[in-house]
Design a protein around this nucleic acid. Structure first.
Lengths: 118, 118, 118, 118
DNA sequence: GTGGTCTAGACCACC
DNA sequence: GTGGTCTAGACCACA
């Protein structure tokens, strides 16, 4: 896996796993690869994966069972979508809107891009 | 000034100055406060302000005359708008659109927010 | 059974069994479920139950007869109460008291809670 | 500093710092020792101190300024007391009370200990 | 086998 | 100088 240098690797890993859960590559109620295994796959130190897992767990996006491993909760997809949605509306949207206003980009541009992208 | 700890302070300062130029608080062809002065105003290390100025200069948003100070070029506003617009379309838009698709946010929500915000 | 992830599962099981003995759900002189049986009931690895049993045995709260199983001794309830009482006075009380002092919680609050809880 | 083996070192450090803040050994608005300095003092790896600081920060008990260091917020003491008080009432109290009921310890014992300890 | 913690040591961006 | 991240490697309790 290739990493972007401006964002911490563990965050990139966490986001990538989060997206994989959304894409049901790690379906609800399944077990995630062990820390060591995931680390080997990504060519990264186990500690870094551990941090990514812990980060996801702090949001309730994954859970763990002692001595067994990390799991995707049954309601993970809803949890993640809800969290991202909230974040989008609270943080992203205001920034986007003020930026558009300042730049004089009208909603048409946005809608057209949106439709073209469906 | 209050700073968000997740983004470098010099970047936050640079953005704030950029916005002040757009708002003509620092009008075209005017002189910006000296590095020391600005640092005192913001309660920040002069090095940090220097870096913010350098950053803005690298985009051509401000210019400096050695021994005199930093200035807002006559065409600063167009420069800034042009740069931000390009950045918005190349970087922000794609991210926003994929995120919206994943989250199932439709264009209506976006348009409504946009109109409510006019 | 639901487990708290911050405490070892075997300890949680041991405490739960201890409480069940106090509640005479496993009365004095009765035989405890076999390790395998208990493990199946709890949805847990037999090793984990074995460890819980061993832990209880180390306090004399249960005893085992080789090849037969684990038993609740005739004086188990007194043993357990005695042990817990000692532990409470030696370990819990001092911590509670210093914490209350630091937090400025007065004895009234405590007594009221106690009475309300009778 | 001596560490208890059953609790993670970083948690013990965090608790100890928290108590030092309460005792105004690190008074409000003062700067905490740098991560490296504290690590040297405690004979511990800087990462471990970093984790303790991060843990305290996650509760809002300390804060940091980029490139400068960690600080004790002006309202740290109230924050900490409030947090501990809540924890005491929600988590500690119920456990204490049921334990006392089971063991047949009456409120008198508790009150006497409390008074003797003033 | 699993997670969880810790160390030693390094490198980086930032102030 | 400061925090922040990462690696390599180790050890532990637990399942």
């Amino acid at each position: 896996m290739e990493f972007n240098n401006n964002i911490s690797i563990f965050l990139q890993i966490a986001e990538s796993i989060r997206d994989d859960i959304l894409a049901e590559q790690y379906p609800p109620n399944s077990k995630l690869p062990s820390v060591r295994e995931m680390a080997a796959q990504l060519g990264v130190n186990p500690n870094t994966v551990m941090r990514a897992y812990a980060h996801l767990q702090s949001f309730g996006f994954i859970s763990n069972r002692r001595g067994i491993g990390f799991f995707v909760p049954g309601d993970a997809i809803e949890q993640i979508k809800e969290g991202m949605r909230k974040d989008f509306i609270e943080n992203d949207l205001p920034k986007i809107l003020t930026k558009m206003k300042v730049l004089g980009i009208d909603s048409k541009t946005l809608i057209d891009s949106f439709k073209a992208n469906l």
